[in-house]
Simulated assay, not measured.
Amino acid sequence: MPAETDPHERTWMAFPREGFTLGEGADEREEGYAAWTAVAHAIVEFEPVTMVVDPTEMSRARRMLSGDVEIIEAPIDEFWMRDMGPTFVVDDARPGALAAVDWIFNGWGAPHWAEWRKSALVGRFVGEHLGVEVIDSLLVNEGGGIHVDGAGTVLLTETVQLDPRRNPFADKARVASEMARTIGATDAIWLSRGLTRDYDDMGTNGHVDIVATFTSPEHVLLHEQQNPDHPDFAVSRQIRGELEAAFASRGRDVTITGLPAPDTLRDDTGWVDWSYVNHLAVNGGVIACGFGEDAADARARDILAAAYPGRRVVTVDARPLFDRGGGIHCITQQQPAVG
């Protein structure tokens, strides 16, 4: 699996459709449609975007999306492309060879509220649409549950891949073996947990893509909650310690840069998990989460610009995404350029 900073052919997304995730009432639904649309329009300034759209939403998608966004019709229920869609890999031995890993998707552990059976077929659909090899996996996993450095290392979370609602018979060795078979990962680094909000009923149970990401094999960006009143103050320090110990045990000199959380601590539901780590690197740019805090958003842009030299950082309001359970990285999936 290439690094996300490698060149992309395009970014894949899925357009929202009516249901529990999108929200109740016209205002909530319109807010969701607008948020997904804003992310697509930000990305398409840098690289092509292909949007999978449910038949019930085709007219709305055509109305809201610019003509620069390619639309493909397919049945979906959930619309978090990172998690339900394929993970793309390349074959170094065959230049130009692209494949799509089709994980099993069960709605983040088959919670009572999730609608996922249609979207569970999207990984294979995308691979077959592109005419590339589809690599089947019996592991229940989501793209937001892994991060790679492009050089063989994968970050995992014990509460995701070893979640009994996902993989009741898995252990670390079996998961690591499957990561080697599917995405070519030769080294699995396990984190013990994710952010606090992610363990709520609508959470993913600890996705890594809201916690830490590689910008290169020698550099990690880490969510940093700086307010001791928030439970993630302790969590982010625990995860930093786990990463430091993992890299030290491997003799790797990896810089870990804290990406401070915004100042807001709570919303109407509880502790927020607002995280600037959940961004998307695109060709020549970075699509960053914004949270309506000018100073914090600007600080995050500066850190991201330094971490990704030569890329233009664009902020998109991600609060409507986080209200529904994720961020910009969660609703996108990069297709690497090959050949």
Rank of each mutant, 00 (worst) to 15 (best):
M1N: 08
P7H: 10
P16I: 00
E18H: 12
L22R: 05
G23D: 09
G25P: 05
E31F: 09
E31L: 15
G32I: 02
A35G: 08
V39F: 04
A40L: 03
E45N: 12
M51D: 02
P55V: 10
T56K: 14
R63A: 14
S66A: 11
V69N: 09
D77C: 04
F79L: 04
M84D: 04
V89N: 04
D91G: 09
A93G: 15
P95Q: 07
A100K: 12
V101D: 05
D102Q: 06
I104C: 10
W108T: 03
H112E: 15
E115K: 13
K118W: 07
V126F: 06
G127W: 03
G131I: 01
D136A: 14
V140M: 11
N141T: 08
E142W: 15
G143R: 08
G145W: 04
D149F: 11
T157L: 11
T159A: 08
V160S: 05
Q161L: 09
D163F: 10
R166H: 12
N167G: 10
D171V: 01
A180W: 07
I183N: 01
I183Y: 01
I183C: 00
I189F: 06
R193D: 15
R193Y: 08
G194M: 08
L195H: 06
T196Q: 11
G203F: 03
G203V: 05
N205R: 07
N205A: 05
A212L: 07
A212R: 08
T215C: 01
P217T: 05
V220E: 06
F233I: 12
Q238L: 15
Q238F: 06
I239T: 02
A246H: 11
R250Y: 09
I256K: 02
L259E: 00
L265P: 13
R266H: 15
R266C: 07
D267L: 03
V272R: 00
D273W: 14
S275C: 04
Y276C: 00
V277Q: 04
V282Q: 00
N283R: 00
G284D: 04
G284Q: 12
G285D: 01
I287P: 00
E293M: 12
A295E: 14
A300K: 03
I303L: 11
V313T: 04
V316S: 01
P320N: 06
L321A: 13
L321I: 11
F322N: 10
G325P: 08
G326I: 15
H329M: 12
C330K: 11
C330V: 12
T332L: 02
Q333A: 12
A337T: 09
